[in-house]
Amino acid sequence: MTRPEDVLVQRLGETVLEQVRFRDDLTLIVPREQMLRALEIARSTGFRLLTDLTAVDRHPAQPRFDVIYMLTSVEQHARIRFMVHLAAEQTMPSATSLWPGANWLEREVFDLFGIRFDGHPDLRRILMPDDWEGHPLRKDYPLVEEPVEFKGHTPKVPSQIIPKSKPKPL
């Protein structure tokens, strides 16, 4: 039996730049310009549920952002993940024309990462206050402790108690 993911990969053909398989999760890396078409093909192949849309900040690596789309086929019980590499100043095409549910998800990515979506009907902040400065989930946005009023104590960010160890790439 061919799996729905394999059918999709076949239908996408040249659009897929790279396939990453890790712990049974399949990620398809697609160029930015082809993303909407790839999503449309995926939707017509049965991946009708946009489970999630999010981003990862790879700062200081380049290209800086990865935008991630997770799709689910509710009938065939299959999942697929799309990834787009995005430079810091680039924008993404909005998926709201395909899924109205992408509206809030894209607003959240804009709010927390500062990635703009072209063609989004209402791209405003959603979780942070409207007048907030900066995008909190960016890696260069610091997490700091609030100052205290009393003497003899230097606030320490709880996250510094156990220092980060060196990354070990694959």
């Binding site: 890790f22 712990r23 999760d25 990620t27 999630d52 997770m70 999942r79 993940r81 160890s165 990354p167 070990k168 790439p169 694959l170």
Partner: peptide, 8 residues
């Protein structure tokens, strides 16, 4: 220290 990778 998990290996490098991404899971959902």
């Amino acid at each position: 220290h998990p290996p490098a990778g991404e899971v959902y």
